[in-house]
Design a protein around this nucleic acid. Structure first.
Lengths: 237, 237
DNA sequence: CGGCATGTTGAGTCAATTCAACAGCAGTGG
DNA sequence: CCACTGCTGTTGAATTGACTCAACATGCCG
């Protein structure tokens, strides 16, 4: 149930996010890999909620939990000394994040919007993997899936133009969160820019241009309908 | 020498790599992860050689083998339609590459110089992982290691300046292949550019500038001695 | 309604690219 | 041995795609 109170999964003495009752049932894939693993791990999958912009874990912190987004959205990123930020991935409902093979998290995770996650203790997963090859295999394929995304994203960051980057982004989000032909982006223009290696202004200009060309329509700045996926795919090298 | 003639390691319908006698003892870390896995897999680790610029496998091809560099160097990359290339990683002696969890390779692999690899059949590794959790765990950590590199590289590609990228590259290569304070780069300027998301000219200019500043010294274009790692590290945000 | 976040658009700038010329060096063959 | 050729690398000059800085518009929340 979602009304339960959970002791904070504090990393280092987090005063912590309060548990927010989920307002309604969630549309998460029925029996997904994470559930399978968590169950075979015999691990209790707790739920926890974070408010918009709240940190879930920080880069370099011990990786105590593995998470699955139930509701909301999460960004994982790295920072340079002077504050330049590279978002490695957006995590949407159903996605697993925070699964690091090493003992510490390699990126920081923050809630983009008010977000509810399911979480299991990493050491429970590891223990399960140590006795159950199916679990071990699932851990591997989940990490391999993250690697595939990172490889695709390196190509985008290193070699695509601004317009190609934005086109790729829109097609990715369309695939991952379009409902009834409509896309409700949870993230702001700066987040998109930091994901694509662009400034927020360049992202805005590219979206405006696509709108001018009739390739997409804005209901509001974050509510987008793609009108011509083919032309978008053509722009994405 | 390269007097041996080798039949091409064709991809579809592999007649299979022939075992090539190693010409001399190799300076590969004694008992590494790959050997451990290959051995516990009961898989025969064959050797095979590729000439400079020869393709080892192509993006999208079935991932039949997993490789370890014995001698030489390998680049793995993705291409866009118009030929723009993003090199995801350089693989040096001791490194494992071609380990994809899925059934096909996600990048193309080519020998940068004349290269010898050890290889084992992927299905043998998978089989071993299915009965031996230690092998399964090693597959996971090797993939996780690739993911960590890709995450670091996304930050470089998306957010670092040209000089910062080159500084990072030099420090990485220094760490990975410096012998007696000297670095012998196996790859050309274009490869470096395609790894860093720059043009070859920009790479060349950055290296010249570092040389002018006395941070490094060239014996030849690809033989580099780092004179001041600290200043290099300072340039790398 | 007011105030602050977010998003858009314009103008000028600049870091990196493109285009171009040339230098250095290795391999080849007369 | 040297000329020739091709490939790699360096450097210069001009261009440009994306950025920075700035102003303004929009919209959400209290």
């Amino acid at each position: 149930m979602l009304t339960q109170t959970i002791t904070a999964p504090a990393v280092t003495a987090v005063t912590a996010a309060k548990v927010v009752p989920a307002p309604r049932a969630q549309a998460v894939p029925t029996v997904d890999q994470f559930s399978v693993i968590a169950n075979s791990a015999g691990a209790i999958a707790s739920e926890f909620s974070y408010r918009k912009d709240e940190e879930i874990y920080g880069e370099g912190e011990p990786s105590e939990y593995v998470y699955q987004v139930i509701r909301g959205a999460v960004r994982t990123y790295k920072l340079l000394n002077d504050g330049r930020r590279q978002i490695g991935a957006f995590h949407l409902p159903g996605d697993v994040f925070g699964l690091d093979a090493g003992s510490t998290h390699r990126l920081t995770a923050e809630a983009i919007a008010d977000t509810t996650v399911r979480l299991v203790k990493r050491r429970n997963l590891e223990a399960a993997a140590g006795s159950n090859v199916q679990v071990a295999h699932n851990l591997w394929t989940m990490t391999a899936s993250d690697l595939r995304h990172a490889e695709d994203h390196m190509l985008l960051l290193g070699r695509k133009t601004a317009m190609e980057k934005v086109a790729t982004f829109l097609l990715e989000m369309d695939r991952r969160l379009a409902k009834a032909g409509m896309m409700a982006l949870p993230m702001c223009r700066r987040d998109i820019g930091d994901y694509l290696g662009l400034t927020l202004e360049t992202v805005s200009r590219a979206l405006s241009q696509l709108s001018d060309q009739g390739i997409l329509v804005f209901s509001s700045a974050r509510q987008i309908v793609l009108r011509n996926r083919q032309r978008l795919a053509d722009m994405d090298a």
